[in-house]
């Protein structure tokens, strides 16, 4: 897997320039994600076939001329379905993540700034749906909201709201307990000032990291839902649906199932590797423990003259 080259990178001596400016641990997954996103956007221009056109004379054909990745059990072009699938998967998951953050982090921060009671009420409400695992919650929401990409996006977003809200709350409380927040309050800074000047800049890293973790999870949940046959219309080109449909013909046409599967795993893998890199850079908890920095000890040699020259 592509985890291997990253683990071995520090040992390699060459490519030191590249490593400093764009380590493989970031570049490779970033390139894959960007490539898939671009291909999804450019889908209409990249393929000759519509993802829905059935060619009943060309069922379960292997890769070859005319159909670069072959056709499925209904004679549809797999490449075209794959690219349109990338489009819908990325759009739905990215929007779902945005909804999860708008609702989870946005409402969370609002309630936290408003005070103790707003916080209790919001989190009591969140606790009620938290008992259900995310996938099941999304499934139930789709049952109620109906299928289609709109309800699917909302269901995905809402199913991740509890996680985001809890992470936001923990980060907020960690910062709000600091003395610099008290100091700002003693200068007469109001809730908005403290939030924007002190708390947001300090929790932004945590939130960005969390978003990077949620996005691949959104993609996985989306694919699970479409694999189960809920969320999108039966012939819509989504990866999960492609895998589910082709699983009945797995012996005759393994290529039809491998194409979406490999793409899906490659995308989630790249995104989660990127997320790991982000966490390494941004997560304050890691930073505090990993980087000793001058804060940890009042570096005697450098500091002493000034310290001693105090009075």
């Amino acid at each position: 897997m592509s985890a291997r080259p990253i683990a071995m990178m520090p040992a390699g001596r060459r490519a030191s320039f590249l490593r400093r400016h764009c380590p493989a641990g970031i570049c490779l997954p970033a390139a894959i994600v960007l490539l898939l996103a671009a291909a999804g956007l450019a889908a209409p221009w990249l393929t000759a076939h519509s993802p829905l056109d059935q060619d009943l004379l060309q069922l379960n054909k292997g890769p070859g001329a005319g159909f670069p990745l072959g056709t499925d059990h209904l004679g549809r072009d797999i490449l075209s379905r794959l690219l349109y699938g990338a489009r819908s998967t990325l759009a739905v998951s990215a929007l779902g993540t945005v909804i999860a953050f708008a609702a989870g982090a946005g409402l969370g921060l609002l309630a936290l700034t408003l005070g103790h009671w707003a916080e209790r009420i919001l989190f009591a409400a969140i606790d009620l749906i938290r008992a259900l695992p995310g996938t099941l919650l999304a499934l139930l929401l789709i049952v109620g909201l109906g299928s289609g990409s709109g309800p699917l996006t909302i269901a995905l977003g809402v199913s991740f709201v509890p996680v985001v809200a809890y992470v936001t709350r923990a980060a907020y409380h960690r910062e709000a307990a600091r003395d610099y927040v008290l100091a700002a309050a003693s200068f007469g800074g109001n809730g908005l000032h403290i939030l924007s000047r002190h708390i947001l800049p300090n929790i932004a890293g945590t939130l960005i990291t969390q978003a990077a973790i949620i996005l691949p999870r959104c993609i996985v949940t989306e694919s699970v839902l479409s694999f189960l046959g809920v969320g999108s219309s039966p012939d819509a080109p989504t990866w999960g649906r492609m895998i589910a449909d082709s699983s009945r013909f797995i012996e005759r046409a393994p290529h039809a199932i491998m194409a979406p599967l490999v793409t899906l795993v490659l995308l989630t893998l790249s995104l989660s590797l990127l997320g790991n890199q982000l966490r390494r850079r941004f997560d304050p908890i890691r930073q505090e423990t990993d980087v000793p920095g001058p804060a940890a000890d009042p570096a005697p040699a450098a500091v002493r003259p000034v310290e001693a020259g105090g009075c």
């Binding site: 999960g240 699983s247 795993v265 989630t268």
Partner: peptide, 15 residues
């Protein structure tokens, strides 16, 4: 566990 959804692992196992 993050990158490979269980149903994908299942398909791979079957294959």
């Amino acid at each position: 566990s993050i990158a490979v959804p269980t149903f994908c692992a299942g398909v791979i196992a079957i294959l």
